[in-house]
């Protein structure tokens, strides 16, 4: 466990030392700040726009950070030959990979913490309502999504070169909602074989939009009449199902990565 933690800490320290993470977070915060400073026709109480922009930037910036960070962990170790002294120590490859994963997830948590602090401060400043339960669930599900993306990036980086792994990871992330709606929409249009293929795609590929509660968080508002929220927090069984769903994909991708990593000649 201590070895896992040490490796994770080195990933986080390296990410922070290279300052990339800071700059991405700062650039994103700059964008959020710029949006906050715009006077939208002296209208008060406009909050959906701010929430949508902020949550979108938060999600995209963290996902890209995770994909890039995770995808380059293993290739860089091989390229710089720093993996040899590490593995010469009594550290198993499972521990090594787990440490890397934990490090990437800590970096994701670091990003979300910074973003959240600014987002919540902005929400308070603008005096706009936020459904706290939905927001907490949004963050939790985003972290599960990052876990899936990180393990997927590990796997891709072992299957292809670094640029291709990053590109494919980013493209899959960017187009996952299109993929999900395409499969759902065209199901009625295809024959029996096509239906099987679409069903297989639905089951075998992680449906990343399921981890994105941002739309409900954005559009949740107190209705003037009655005072109830337009959208409420998800119930516990749904959250449990989503957790299990993400965990399955993360475990499969991690397992496959480990398999390839073990077979990779040093």
């Amino acid at each position: 466990m201590r070895a896992v933690w040490l490796i994770a800490r080195s990933v986080l320290v390296e990410a922070v030392r290279r300052k990339e993470i800071y700059v991405i977070v700062l650039a994103s915060l700059g964008l959020i700040g710029a949006v906050m400073t715009v006077d939208f026709f002296r209208l008060e109480g406009l909050s959906k726009f701010y929430r949508e922009i902020a949550l979108k930037i938060m999600g995209v910036a963290t996902a890209l950070t995770v994909i890039v960070l995770a995808a380059r962990q293993l290739p860089r170790e091989f390229e710089a030959r720093t993996i040899y002294p590490l593995l010469a120590k009594p550290i198993s490859r499972t521990t090594f990979l787990l440490g890397k994963l934990l490090g990437v997830m800590l970096a994701a948590g670091f990003c979300f913490t910074l973003f959240s602090a600014v987002f919540l401060a902005g929400t308070l400043y603008l005096g706009s309502g936020l459904h706290a339960g939905l927001y907490a669930q949004y963050l939790y599900l985003q972290m599960i999504q990052m876990l899936v993306l990180a393990t997927m990036a590990f796997l891709l980086s072992l299957l292809m070169n670094l640029d291709a792994a990053i590109t494919l990871g980013a493209v899959f992330y960017a187009l996952s909602s299109v993929l999900m709606s395409a499969v759902s929409y065209i199901y009625d249009w295809v024959g029996a074989v096509g239906k099987v293929v679409l069903l297989a795609l639905t089951i075998l590929l992680p449906q990343l939009p399921l981890f994105d509660l941002s739309e409900k968080t954005v559009h949740a508002e107190r209705v003037t009449l009655g005072g109830e929220w337009t959208w409420t927090a998800l119930d516990a069984p749904t959250m449990a199902m989503l957790t299990a769903y993400g965990a399955v994909f993360a475990a499969v991708y991690f397992g496959l990565s480990l398999l390839l990593f073990r077979r990779k000649p040093l």
Binding site: N161, A164, T167, L168, V171, L175, A182, I186
Partner: peptide, 25 residues
């Protein structure tokens, strides 16, 4: 040599998927 055309192949795959969807709907 570094097989960086993988990236190109990924982009081409997106076009193929788009063409397939247009063909279907």
């Amino acid at each position: 040599r570094r097989r960086e055309f993988y990236v190109l192949a990924i982009f081409m795959g997106i076009f193929l998927a788009g063409a397939l969807i247009a063909e279907i709907v």
